[in-house]
Simulated scan of single mutants.
Amino acid sequence: MTRPYNILFLCTGNSARSILGEALATTLSHGRFIGYSAGSQPKLFVHPIALKLAREMGYPLELLRSKTWDEFGRQDAPHMDFIITVCDSAAGEECPYWPGHPATAHWGFMDPAAVDGSEHDMWDAFRKVEMGLRNRIELLIDLPVEKLDHLQIKDELHAIHHRFNSE
């Protein structure tokens, strides 16, 4: 196996969707991918339901924190191979410069933390986002990334998302 691929999930608040992406990419890939997450305007806390779901996945909770995406634009930051925005507002913002020109895509999901309802409704919303991300990440993990060029990878990232949006 080559080195692990680094994947950064971006959202505005970095408290729910991007956190789930980080945990899922790392736990599902068994070392092939290392997930990271960040936000353009981080809330500085991780949503309690996202923490519980990450714990269920076996992801080390001490690695989870809400942080700014500026951390990943620094020279000493891990090199990112993939950057996925998971909320529409982050996708529309001007992102920092990402060294190495990683493959990018938008996999938009509604914000489960914004659900105004019962605890059951919130859990349903979080589970829906978790399953949507899980389905896409599993397809990404199955790609022969090492055999694809940059443009092919970008096309595949977009195709993965559109596969589920057209169903």
Rank of each mutant, 00 (worst) to 15 (best):
G108A: 07
S66A: 11
G132W: 12
E130R: 14
L151Y: 07
D88P: 07
I83F: 00
M122K: 15
N14W: 08
R65P: 04
I83W: 00
W69S: 04
L8H: 09
D76K: 01
L157Q: 10
M110L: 14
W98Q: 05
F109G: 07
L44S: 13
S66Y: 03
P48V: 03
L139M: 13
M122E: 13
L53A: 02
P60S: 03
L61A: 05
G92T: 08
M131P: 01
M57F: 07
P42M: 00
S29Q: 02
D76P: 02
A125F: 11
P48Y: 02
D142G: 15
G100N: 12
D121C: 10
G108W: 06
R136G: 03
A77L: 02
H150G: 07
S15F: 00
I160L: 09
P42V: 04
T27P: 06
Q152I: 03
I34F: 10
L139K: 10
A16G: 03
L53R: 02
D88T: 15
D124A: 14
L10P: 02
A91L: 10
H30P: 06
G117V: 00
P112V: 08
M80W: 08
F72C: 07
P99G: 13
H162K: 12
E62L: 06
I83Y: 00
P112C: 13
K52W: 02
A77N: 02
C87I: 01
H162R: 13
F164G: 03
R32T: 14
M80A: 10
A25N: 01
V129L: 08
W69N: 02
T12A: 12
L133Q: 00
L143N: 09
P60L: 01
C95Q: 13
F72L: 09
R17P: 07
I137P: 07
P4D: 06
T26F: 02
W123R: 14
A113W: 04
L64E: 10
F45T: 15
L10K: 00
A38W: 00
D121S: 14
M122F: 05
C95R: 09
I160C: 10
H101Q: 15
E62D: 14
P4K: 04
F9I: 04
F45S: 12
L61W: 01
K154M: 11
I19A: 04
Y36M: 06
G73P: 01
P78W: 03
G108N: 07
H106T: 12
K52C: 00
L28C: 12
G58N: 12
N165L: 13
H150C: 09
C87W: 13
A105H: 01
R136Q: 05
K154N: 07
L20D: 10
E130Y: 15
T104V: 14
I7P: 11
K128P: 02
D70A: 11
V46F: 01
G58A: 11
F164Y: 15
G100V: 10
S89C: 12
F33T: 05
R32V: 11
H150K: 15
P60I: 01
L20E: 08
E22L: 10
N14Y: 06
D142Y: 01
A90P: 05
P42G: 00
F164Q: 04
T68V: 00
G92I: 09
D81G: 03
F33K: 05
